[in-house]
């Protein structure tokens, strides 16, 4: 038995990656849950919105790199991020103006907006592939590790190494800052409160003199910010590929629903629940168990519950369990 090595191995392969992935999902789910709460539909175009924002950021990152602009140990993408967010804001305001506004004026039922968002999804999907191509893009630069496995081993003398990638560190720190700022905005500022009021009761918000067009606009702007940040962090941590971002829709929706749709706190909790379950179930536990169990009980197989190819099944199953047993989600969002 070697608890310390087991814990380090667990942290290295499960905890650290899951926390980073969970933060990315949480940011994505926050965007979905805001649209659900304020514009009242599930936005299927969210994954591709993330892809568009990330694509814009990548293009600007390459341009900066070409000009020799660097942030030292930090990735250049952080410098390009505000421009990417701005590009995504322009895109979302344009789609709202060109597409969603018409349906709002008709007082269209939410289910119609859901279908409309699927249409927007296909268009964005094509647009992103048209501009940057369907292939894999890497754009991370700067220092690769905060702590590398070898340094960790040398410093502690343990057999197992713990590596923390700088992108993982950046992901968690950025997520904390963004979430804190969002909660402050929604609970403390006049505009934030007016958005909650509009989400609670549209007609009464109108009777209080709250301008619905402004609420909708601010919502899209915030969603553009959240989606781009989530997308860029995911892309830095792994890599950017349009199809992967489209596929991210499932874990993101699962996070939002597990946490409770319409509840920002739930979106964050849901993000971590989904991320941890995915990583736990697709991780090969042989090494950790090898440290924990007596020698004669050491597993001979990989002890991997599910191949990583099936990781989406995990989100699906959790989604099903939550919908069956606690349809309002962990944080009592709107009843599903």
């Amino acid at each position: 038995m070697d608890l310390l090595n087991a814990f380090v191995a667990l942290s290295n392969f499960v905890l650290v990656p899951a926390i980073a992935y969970g933060s990315q999902l949480a940011l994505g789910a926050l965007g979905v849950t805001m649209i659900y709460g304020i514009l009242r539909f599930s936005n299927f175009a969210h994954g591709d919105t993330m892809a568009f924002g990330t694509m814009a950021t990548i293009l600007i990152t390459w341009w900066f790199q070409g000009m020799g602009l660097h942030l030292g140990v930090l990735p250049t993408a952080l410098l390009a991020l505000p421009f990417g967010i701005a590009a995504c804001m322009v895109l979302l305001l344009f789609t709202d103006r060109a597409v969603y506004r018409f349906y709002r004026a008709q007082k269209a039922k939410p289910v119609i907006l859901v279908i409309v968002s699927i249409g927007v999804m296909f268009v964005l999907n094509g647009l992103v592939r048209f501009i940057i191509g369907p292939g894999d893009q890497r754009f991370a630069d700067g220092a690769r590790f905060i702590i590398s496995a070898r340094d960790f081993k040398e410093a502690t003398g343990l057999d197992e190494g713990l590596a923390i990638k700088s992108t993982q560190g950046i992901t968690v720190i950025t997520a904390v800052i963004v979430v804190a700022a969002l909660f402050w905005f929604l609970n403390r500022t006049r505009t934030g409160k007016s958005m909650r009021a509009y989400s609670d009761n549209e007609d009464l918000a109108l009777l209080s003199g709250i301008n619905p067009d402004r609420v909708v606009m601010v919502t899209w702007l915030i969603v553009a910010g959240l989606a781009t940040i989530a997308g860029v962090l995911y892309g830095l941590d792994k890599s950017f590929k349009p199809f992967t971002y489209f596929q991210l829709l499932l874990p993101i929706f699962a996070s939002a629903i597990v946490g409770g749709l319409g509840s920002p706190l739930g979106a964050i909790a849901g993000g971590f629940v989904i991320a941890f379950s995915e990583v736990f179930i697709t991780y090969a536990w042989k090494k950790v168990l090898g440290y924990l169990l007596p020698e004669n009980l050491e597993p001979s197989g990989l002890v991997q519950l599910l191949s990583t190819d099936y990781k989406f099944a995990v989100s699906f199953v959790i989604l099903l369990i939550v919908l069956l047993f606690r349809p309002t989600g962990l944080f009592r969002g709107k009843a599903v």
Partner: peptide, 26 residues
Amino acid sequence: RNAYQDDRGNKDRSITNPDGAGETPL
């Protein structure tokens, strides 16, 4: 009848949120 207000398929709360929706025409 306004086809955009057809309520079919609108009961799935995991994708649609009828709470607090306004009735006042814009």
